[in-house]
């Protein structure tokens, strides 16, 4: 009796396995379409994840990843005493927070303003033009910025024109202006594109709300604060929270193109530091350790924000 009980599940498992294997063989065409994708992800994502172990090794370019000697947490200990790394963290956080403070609500306001326009050619033109900068690469925008901010460039000419300054100077060489330049150029590039999500949400609001408000004599301003904004609040807060979890994220393209020897103390961010330490200076293990440390902190931030959003969203996760 007892032996039978043990045997039967084993038999079933075996049978199930054979069934699955036969089914697998029968659908070899379908499997043949999926498996290359699995192999691709294994190579291009999972192998680099395994490669992260060099953060705990002393890896040089002539080593293999497996063969390099282990050094434990040595690389991480160096990070804590690294003045340049700390500088990069301060810059990353400073730029991210400033971006959040200056840039976060602009798309919301812009979306509401566009929403209040009557449908017609002007609305179309505003939308088309405002989305346009999103499609410029950071290299292109960087080149444009270098021109606008140069001594004889657009910004200085406008400031001279209205008499705010007496003499032009190159703003990209002024380190203390870099954060502002990084933030404002990013806002300029993405503000219009950021309205799409809000515009789509507003398009779903029942127009009878506005009709009723009009009959009651509500002003446009009242309509915005009493109808539009309450509808937008969930998506605004979700967006805000996702932004918070990405505080340590930085824009490598932007930094590489706008950084120069004069502003590097204010423009070096975590990503560009990893890039420089690893690929320019060849300190692969140290750069990987920095990257891993930052990823872990970001993951904690994401988990915290996920818990918060779950509470706000009736227990349902919006991130995972």
């Amino acid at each position: 009796m007892k032996s039978e009980r043990v045997k039967r599940p084993a038999k079933m498992w075996k049978q199930k396995f054979t069934e699955k294997a036969l089914k697998f063989m029968a659908q070899w065409r379908l499997q043949g379409m999926v498996l290359p994708g699995i192999a691709f992800m294994f190579i291009f994502t999972y192998i680099p994840i395994y490669g992260v172990i060099i953060a705990f090794k002393h890896y040089t370019i002539t080593d293999t990843i497996a063969g390099a000697p282990w050094v434990g947490l040595d690389n991480f200990k160096v990070i804590l005493g690294d003045r340049y790394f700390m500088e990069a963290v301060v810059n990353t956080l400073g730029i991210s927070l400033l971006k959040l403070a200056v840039g976060f609500f602009i798309p919301v306001i812009l979306a509401i303003m566009i929403f209040e326009l009557k449908d017609g050619p002007f609305k179309k033109i505003v939308q088309t033009i405002s989305y346009l900068p999103h499609f410029l690469s950071w290299i292109i925008l960087g080149g444009m910025l270098i021109s606008w901010l140069s001594t004889s460039g657009l910004l200085n000419q406008l400031l001279l024109g209205i008499g705010l300054i007496k003499q032009g100077n190159n703003h990209l060489l002024a380190a203390n202006q870099y954060w502002l330049i990084a933030v404002l150029s990013d806002v300029w590039k993405e503000a219009g594109w950021g309205t799409i999500l809000y515009l789509a949400t507003m398009a779903k609001i029942d127009p009878t709300y506005y009709e009723a408000a009009r009959i009651d004599g509500a002003t446009k301003w009242t309509q915005i604060t009493q109808i539009t904004l309450p509808f937008l609040t969930p998506i605004i807060s979700l967006n805000l929270i996702l932004n918070v979890s990405n505080l340590l994220g930085s824009n490598l393209d932007q930094t590489l193109v706008l950084m120069n020897s004069q502003n590097s103390a204010k423009s070096e961010v975590i990503n560009s530091y990893v890039y420089r330490m690893g690929l320019t200076q060849g300190d692969f293990s140290y750069a990987t350790a920095v990257g891993l440390g930052i990823s872990l902190i970001s993951m904690v931030l994401l988990l915290i924000t996920n818990t918060v959003t779950k509470k706000m969203n009736d227990g349902e996760s919006v991130i995972f």
Binding site: P48, I49, G51
Partner: peptide, 11 residues
Amino acid sequence: FGGGMIPYYLL
């Protein structure tokens, strides 16, 4: 998840 810049470069 991903390995980050350096392990990706080595791959």
